[in-house]
Design a protein around this nucleic acid. Structure first.
Length: 913
RNA sequence: GGGCGAUUAGCUCAGUGGUAGAGCGCUUCCUUCACACGGAAGAGGCCACAGGUUCGAUACCUGUAUCGCCCA
């Protein structure tokens, strides 16, 4: 194997392109139920089809790929199932924007042509993210790529909808829902993002009907909805207002009288004036209060969230008021109403006030509570088994801390509004017979409104005729389902459900779900509910929740802030392996990932280090290689095997615990600081000596450990490991399908590891001494080493050749007090002594300072331990082994101190001080 | 308002009831035949604060402060 095969610096780009293509060609990632091994399946959280790979995906996908590649190498029947989500509102918005640039609109195109247009868009742009995923090296079974609007998945959606409807778990009804006046659709509760903003608290006088000179002062943050008030509430126990309950007030700006009610739930006596208005059609709390007191609902905003003239008329507003307010958006109506109230003497005061506004999670427009007929999932019956599954540990959430979050939300869950008034998505399989619903289906010029009392025919296929009247004039519900409805079915719909496929039998329940916290409720909770309902079993056993990726300052990445790290750019600059390793090493549970480019650069350097270790190995591989039993190998070989066994155990254990960060750190530490810094240095004398007696065995160990290390690292850094593995001696076609290393007990040797620590300390002291005395690295020096403990002294003797090599000098091992008493710098650590001769012209200042410092430190430490040992409480209560350890340390440190003092004295004498 | 998490080296973060750790950055030295994307040696910390438990607390408990997240 010629060394010229590997360039001096690792160039990720060509390697990555070559292997990502090659792996796919060889179909290593293809899974089938017929394959041997215990199944291990992960379904990918399907990225939006509109998406392109951002760093959040990169984290999410890297972690999954690590798990998948690791399990595949362990011999499991591994399936990582990829796909994309049709992302109803998001995708519709993207295509609408595109239409706008062409001077077109959704409405102008009409529903059918618009949907066609979205499919077209999907065909050309929908694969962007998939290609980027392949670039990241994701070992998905791409043959099984799914899309939430695939034929099969759509069939699953229909099946689920109809069955839930038949079970009474889906219903249609008029409720107050969250409405985005820009997207013109309903949203579910969790699709609304709450944001604190500066607002005002208005105090408004409502005159008492029986005596207008008396006012009830009401506090509100939304005066513009005042015209829709249908009552005023006070706390029933509030002595200030108790006597008013049951009386009426005149609603300002209108001709209406509204009642004063007592409501302990709605009213906080401490807040504002202690009296609040009730506007059931425009506030969720008021809606519920309205239910409690059987109040009418008066809607005064239309679906664009503009003040509606017809609504205002119904609400009895003054004609002049209607004139001034109609067609105003909320933001303009609010100051206008303020002015009107002030002019008419109703406004008492206005204070600054912090308030939360809800915004559409897709377009950030302020959402309005809006009264309209919608479809809902009755969720409690579905939630209960989903709660139990987690409580009983059939699903494990990792880190555990999120379990309570999940349970709390599930126990307090509200019915799920699933209808969306958009066009892109699964159209609801419900039809209305126009003759049976004559009064409930209202056709206006460009809209058909289906009122809440309409009775739908729910069916997987379009009914030929109305089952009750036989009529053929059927109209399909225009609404589509919430995107998250289809993603809730993802773990089984992608495996072929409702058909009874081999895939379902083999891979369901899936093993692990890897996801960010942001979609725990959107997605994870709903998958659990649907999985339990339709498969009778949990959809996955472990849910691993990782953190959000933020920028180096900890800020959320966003295009508007310009702080986005583009993973593709990073992959291009530093290599995909470097990015993957960075993300893995930063994935500590419960903490957000603050990503800085320097960090990635550091792991790029790591990749290069590995690359050069491989180059080094290849340089010296010529010649026979012989496998000896571990116990018969050289000290460096035995040591690295022992360390390798240890690191295999650590990485495997940490991966089992989803501690990607610790597994990555351990690998980094082992490869760089043990394998490269020490092992490769230790074996150089053997490799560089032709015909060395240990040559064959050393070369074998070198390959054996390097090859195993590549396998161990492969899930984290698939590209560079594959490239190196292919270059060094190996058996098999690809690293992807090799077995993951397991610990060989014969490798482990605590004794050898102990000897190594002694070696490491000795070499460290010599190097320190070299710097202190300004001896250049190339200069050979003769020095003494020795140890307090006789057995250690013996070990030093055995290690002599290695110490010689690593410290570039001639070593004499002897008892420290036999050493010369002049012109010798003694360095001491825990019983170990190194003595370096001091040449004539050396500046001793540094050495003396160092000794001073160490003596001071040793004294301090001795004092501390001594203090403890003199404490009767400690000696009587601490465990004996701890006390013994303390005594041992006192002994060692005292001896160290004596020797250090001695050495210091010598040096001072040399200086003539 | 409720819940959760964080606070450890200049920065980003691990960690443990008994000697405080890493990466990056910093200082000094070194182009030595794997690697300067490198090597060697260093500097740098009342482990947020105040109580408590304990022979012993950075770690366990309580409270405070600051920051962040989720929910309302």
């Amino acid at each position: 194997m010629a060394s010229s095969q590997l360039e001096k610096t690792y160039d990720p780009r060509t390697v990555e392109t070559r292997w990502s293509h090659e792996w796919l060609t060889r179909r290593y990632f293809h899974a089938s139920p017929q394959q041997p091994g215990r199944p291990y399946c992960i379904v990918i959280p399907p990225p939006n089809v509109t998406g392109s790979l951002h760093v959040g995906h990169a984290l999410n996908h890297s972690l999954q790929d690590i798990l998948i590649r690791w399990r595949r190498m362990q011999g499991r029947n591994t399936l990582w199932l990829p796909g994309t989500d049709h992302a109803g509102i998001a995708t519709q918005n993207v295509v609408e924007k595109q239409l706008m640039t062409e001077g077109l609109s959704r409405e102008a195109l009409g529903r059918e042509r618009f949907v066609e247009r979205v499919w077209q868009w999907k065909a050309t742009s929908g694969n962007t993210i998939v290609n980027q995923q392949k670039q990241l090296g994701e070992s998905c079974d791409w043959d099984r790529l799914r899309f939430t609007m695939d034929e099969g998945l759509s069939k699953a959606v229909l099946e689920v909808f109809v069955r839930l409807y038949e079970d009474g778990l889906i219903y249609r009804g008029e409720r107050l829902i969250n409405w985005c006046p820009r997207c013109l659709t309903a949203l579910s509760d969790i699709e609304v993002e709450h944001e604190d903003t500066k607002g005002k608290l208005y105090s408004i006088d409502y005159p008492l009907a029986e005596n207008p000179s008396i006012h009830l002062t009401v506090a509100t943050t939304r005066p513009e909805t005042l015209l829709g008030d249908t009552a005023v509430a006070v706390h029933p126990d509030d002595e200030r207002f108790q006597h008013l309950i049951g009386k009426e007030v005149r609603l300002p700006l209108t001709n209406r009288m509204i009642p004063i009610v007592g409501d302990a739930l709605l009213v906080d006596r401490e807040f504002g004036t202690g009296a609040v208005k009730i506007t059931p059609a425009h506030d969720f709390n008021d809606y519920e209060a309205g239910e409690r007191h059987a109040l009418p609902r008066l809607a005064i905003l239309d679906h664009h969230a503009l003040l509606d003239a017809a609504g205002l008329r119904r609400a009895g507003a003054d004609p002049t008021v209607i004139d001034q307010l109609q067609r105003l958006p909320v933001s303009k109506a609010r100051p206008k109403v303020e002015t009107l109230l002030e002019e008419r003497g109703h406004l008492v005061k206005v204070e600054d006030h912090k308030m939360a506004v809800g915004k559409c999670y897709r377009c950030k427009t302020i959402v309005e509570p809006y009264l309209s007929p919608q479809w809902f999932v009755k969720i409690k019956p579905l939630a209960e088994p989903a709660i139990t599954a987690v409580e009983e540990g059939r699903i494990r959430i990792i880190p555990e801390g999120w379990t309570n979050n999940y349970l709390g939300w599930m126990r307090d869950i509200k019915d799920w509004c699933i209808s969306r008034q958009i066009w892109w998505g699964h159209q609801i399989p419900a039809w209305y017979c126009l003759s049976c619903n004559a009064t409930h289906v209202i056709k206006t010029e460009n809209r058909i409104a289906i009122l809440s009392g309409a009775s739908p025919i729910v069916s997987k296929t379009a009914p030929a005729s109305c089952p009750s009247c036989g009529g053929h004039d059927l109209y399909r519900d225009p609404d589509v389902l919430d995107t998250w409805f289809s993603s809730a079915l993802w773990p089984f719909s992608t495996l072929g459900w409702p058909e009874h496929t081999e895939e379902l039998k083999t891979y369901y329940p899936t093993a692990t779900l890897v996801t960010g916290l942001d979609i725990l409720f959107f997605w994870v909770a709903r998958m659990i509910m649907m999985g339990l309902k339709f498969m009778g079993d949990v959809p996955f056993k472990d849910v691993y929740i990782h953190a959000l990726v933020r920028d180096a300052e900890g800020k959320k990445m966003s295009k508007s802030k310009g702080n986005v790290i583009d993973p593709l750019h990073v992959m291009n600059e530093f290599g995909t392996d470097a990015l993957r390793f960075t993300l893995a090493s930063m994935a500590s549970p419960g903490r957000d990932v603050k990503l800085a480019e320097e960090r990635i650069e550091g792991y790029r350097n790591f990749a290069n280090k590995i690359w050069n270790a491989a180059r080094f190995a290849l340089m010296y591989l010529d010649g026979p290689r012989t496998a000896l039993p571990p116990a018969q190998r050289t000290f460096p070989d035995r040591w690295i095997l022992s360390r390798l066994a240890h690191i295999i155990h650590v990485v495997t254990t940490e991966l089992e615990a989803y501690r990607f960060d610790r597994a990555a750190t351990a690998l980094y530490q082992f490869i760089w600081h043990e394998y490269c810094d020490w092992y490769l240095e230790l074996i150089k004398p053997v490799l560089q000596t032709p015909e060395h007696q240990d040559g064959a065995s050393t070369r074998h160990t070198l390959v054996e450990t390097l090859e195993a290390t590549m396998r161990l690292l492969h899930p984290f850094m698939p590209f560079i490991t594959e490239e190196i593995w292919q270059t060094i001696p190996h058996q098999g076609d690809s690293l992807v399908v090799q077995t993951y290393p397991v610990v060989d007990q014969a490798w482990t040797s605590p004794e050898v590891e102990q000897h190594f620590v002694l070696l490491e300390h000795t070499v460290g002291l010599v190097r320190t001494g070299r710097v202190l005395l300004n001896y250049p690295p190339g200069q050979q020096i003769a020095f003494h080493i020795g140890h307090d403990a006789p057995d250690r002294q013996l070990h030093l003797d055995q290690l002599q050749q290695h110490i010689t090599h690593l410290s570039r000098g001639q070593v004499r091992v002897s008892r420290p007090h036999d050493w010369p008493t002049t012109r010798l710098l003694r360095l001491i650590a825990e019983g170990l002594s190194v003595g370096i001769p001091v040449a004539e012209d050396v500046d001793l200042q540094k050495a003396i300072e160092r000794l001073d410092k160490q003596i001071a430190e040793t004294n301090k430490e001795l004092q501390r331990i001594d203090g403890k040992l003199k404490n009767v409480e400690f000696t009587s209560k601490a465990p004996p082994d701890v006390i013994a350890e303390h005594h041992g340390r006192v002994q060692t440190l005292s001896r160290d101190r004596a020797l250090l003092a001695d050495s210091q004295q010598q040096l001072r004498a040399m200086l003539g001080v």
